[in-house]
């Protein structure tokens, strides 16, 4: 199927439009973060300020609690991603490979967890966690984020497992492996793209979460960066330059992670879909 040159040009133009649309808001974020305070409003609508500065960045890094927020976020998002991926691999494998009585109840339970506003859980979770000393602590946050992300991650991992032929485990079991050894040594290595995709998906979700971080944490020591970003609003009477600088810095790990895994996300989902 050769396509006409005019179609090719239209195709590339459309792609370009999408890229511009996707990147322009991010570009604006960057632009504001390098605009000196005195030009912020006077050159508010210019594409690029006449002078640029890194003072917002240096302030955020040197004089704010941002490095702490950043470290906390990294710990929380990283541990959540790893824990969720382990739990979701196990549960997704059970859903993909076993027929058992409670299967449909488990699926139903996981679907229901996707159906209500999580706001509803704030007060009950706070009430349950505070006697355990898990409020105002990073482990408490990891616990909550892990639970929130496990259902979707389980479905995701299940679709990856569904794409891997059952023959492989059976061959391994005949070769002398238990089902669990076959899962670990044969199936998991083949699901690496899926694991990468799940890790990335959960990492970005945990990295961005604001509501529970806000409600369960008070004080800078255990704040994650989204909460920290909001403190810029109150503390410095909305210093947009600094806030955007912090925002750009905070975007970096999430974006890096996402750039690395998005390929696998498509691949992995395709593999799952092939089997249908």
């Amino acid at each position: 199927m050769r396509s006409k040159p005019i179609l090719t040009v239209l195709h590339r133009l459309a792609i370009l439009a999408y890229v511009v649309f996707a990147l322009f808001p991010l570009f604006w974020l960057l632009k504001v973060s390098v605009t000196p305070n005195d030009l912020l409003y006077s050159e508010g609508v210019r594409m690029w300020p006449s002078r640029t500065t890194f003072e917002h960045y240096s302030f955020v890094i040197a004089h704010s609690a941002f490095p702490t927020f950043f470290k906390n976020s990294l710990i929380v998002a990283g541990s959540t991603a790893v824990t969720v991926t382990i739990l979701a691999s196990l549960a997704g494998y059970a859903l993909s490979r076993f027929n058992f009585r409670a299967k449909y109840w488990i699926v139903a339970l996981m679907l229901i967890t996707q159906m209500f506003p999580l706001v509803m859980l704030v007060a009950p979770i706070f009430k349950m966690l505070s006697p355990l000393g898990l409020t105002n602590s990073l482990p408490g946050l990891v616990l909550v984020y892990t639970a929130f992300n496990v259902p979707f991650a389980t479905f995701l991992m299940q679709s990856f497992f569904d794409g891997i032929p059952k023959d492989l485990e059976e061959a391994a079991m005949i070769d002398g492996a238990t089902q669990f050894v076959a899962f670990r040594q044969i199936i998991l290595p083949l699901t690496l793209p899926g694991i990468a995709a799940t890790l990335g998906f959960v990492f970005t979700a945990a990295w961005s979460e604001l509501l529970f971080a806000l409600m369960l944490i008070s004080g800078n020591d255990a704040s994650t960066f989204p909460v920290g970003l909001l403190t810029f609003v109150s503390k410095f009477s909305v210093d947009f330059g600094q806030m955007m600088a912090a925002g750009v810095l905070a975007l970096i790990p999430a974006c890096l992670f996402f750039l690395l895994i998005q390929r696998y996300l498509v691949q992995g989902l395709t593999a799952g879909a092939v089997k249908g």
Partner: peptide, 9 residues
């Protein structure tokens, strides 16, 4: 066992 799909790892 030898499988129809071979089931090679």
């Amino acid at each position: 066992m030898v499988f129809q799909s071979y089931a090679l790892y």
